[in-house]
Write a protein that binds this DNA or RNA. Structure first.
Lengths: 262, 262
DNA sequence: GCGCAGGTGG
DNA sequence: CCACCTGCGC
């Protein structure tokens, strides 16, 4: 089948980022594009844009908050939204799962940020990881071919933030949420991005509020590309398309791209 | 002194229109630019932009509403804001009067829109014309050299709107407000724009809410260029710079430009 | 429809 | 800083 490029991009409103997607997709051949924070209801999702760029697109969003989408050149066998465990919130606007071919699973996530360690949303965030692990247990084994991507709202190691010691009580850097992230690795996922980019300063998010955050490279690596071994073995490269963060009216995130021989 | 170009432009927020002004002023040599609806307090007026474009600039605005400015290549002898009659509102953010040389007066107006025929603002609008006429009586005779420009929020004749019969009860087209406009002509002003452009479809405002208003030319002529006879005799041309209405993120108005041999 | 305001969110 | 919201003005 050849080399496939799979990207994850928190767009911070898909409708406000069409100029960025237009420019990027015109000079970068992406096979599967996973979006988070589309921030729009399905009726107002700009599906026509993706069709014109040669993608099929599947989305589930809500007004102003959350929302995930998968745009794919190849038609998936099926697509489903949410954690499907009967609990609420059901995660429809935070998780989309597609099957490609007959055994390649792609799960695109927008994990709750959590707000504050003592906020109910942080509890929900930790629960989200629990529920995801149960989803994996129920549907797969570590030998399954699974790619998990998305904004996981966790910087898993000290290398993944700029000032780790200032951030020990941050909802994206607290021990508990790092433990939740690591439980994914323990379940059977490889951090595919780190396999190819083990160095310092590899961020995917630079806060709008930090002055010259990109030039000073004050950022976070919270957008991830994980895969079970059978897929991770086929990964050939991974990188952050950080140039997009410097374009006009950017998202605060940049895409993370993985190349897989599939 | 040679040919002078004087323009009136309701910018619908000066700070949101700098890209339009940048592009326009780079390829059009304007001597005096009169702005309305600058929508910004003086502390946040982008005076540096006008300085860089070679203008002196004088402005009086308020947060979110109203606001007038005059940008001039030549330094005026003096500038004053408001109707100066001791009544309230004083009109500081709706009228600016400059003297050029020792006898050329320029009055730039943003007349209240009026909201509805039965709204107190409509009464205020008619009063505004009364107060303006008193201002003229007090300071000038019809032999004075005066240019009056601005968004007068009146379409004076059936030719100046698209569907006159639908608009008889509109605050910019009602008989009473047209009477107020005509009282300016009777006082001693010539409609300089109509002197040069007597034809149909000469509009200066196209409502954002009307689908494809510009292409369909569904608009209003409410931005005006008037002058007393001694100045009107020296007018050589007038036109609407309607191309600006088609640029990215335009104002809902286009500039009206007059050329005068002064 | 597109400015503004103030507010929430990350 | 830059998305979103509601509400207002034209």
């Amino acid at each position: 089948m050849g080399m496939k490029k799979i990207a994850t991009f928190n767009v911070n409103s898909v409708r406000s980022r069409l100029h960025i997607l237009e420019r990027w997709l015109n000079d970068t051949n992406i096979d599967i594009l996973c979006l988070q924070e589309t921030k729009t209801e399905d009726a107002t999702f700009p599906s026509e844009f993706f069709h014109q760029k040669g993608f099929q697109v599947f989305y589930c969003g809500e007004k102003a908050y959350n929302g995930v989408a998968v745009a794919s050149k190849e038609k998936p066998a099926w697509v489903s939204f949410g954690l499907g465990d009967g609990l609420l919130p059901d995660g429809r606007t935070r998780m989309v799962h597609c099957l490609f071919g007959d055994d390649l699973h792609l799960i695109n996530l927008y994990v709750p940020q959590g707000k504050a360690l003592d906020h109910p949303d942080y509890e929900m965030k930790l629960k989200f990881f629990d529920r995801l692990l149960k989803y994996l247990d129920k549907n797969f084994t570590p030998e399954s071919k699974i790619i998990v991507v998305g904004d996981l709202n966790v910087a898993p190691t000290d290398m993944d933030v700029t000032n780790p010691d200032n951030k020990r009580n941050h909802v994206c850097f607290h021990e508990d949420v790092k433990k939740a992230f690591n439980s994914l690795l323990e379940w059977g996922f490889v951090d595919v991005f780190r396999k190819h980019r083990p160095g310092e300063g590899e961020f995917s998010f630079w806060d709008y509020r930090v002055k010259n955050a990109l030039e000073r490279n004050i950022g976070w690596r919270i957008d991830h590309l994980l895969a079970t071994k059978p897929v991770a073995e086929r990964s050939k490269d991974a990188y952050v398309a950080r140039e997009l963060r410097a374009w006009e009216k950017p998202s605060d995130h940049a895409p993370v791209v993985g190349k897989f021989e599939l």
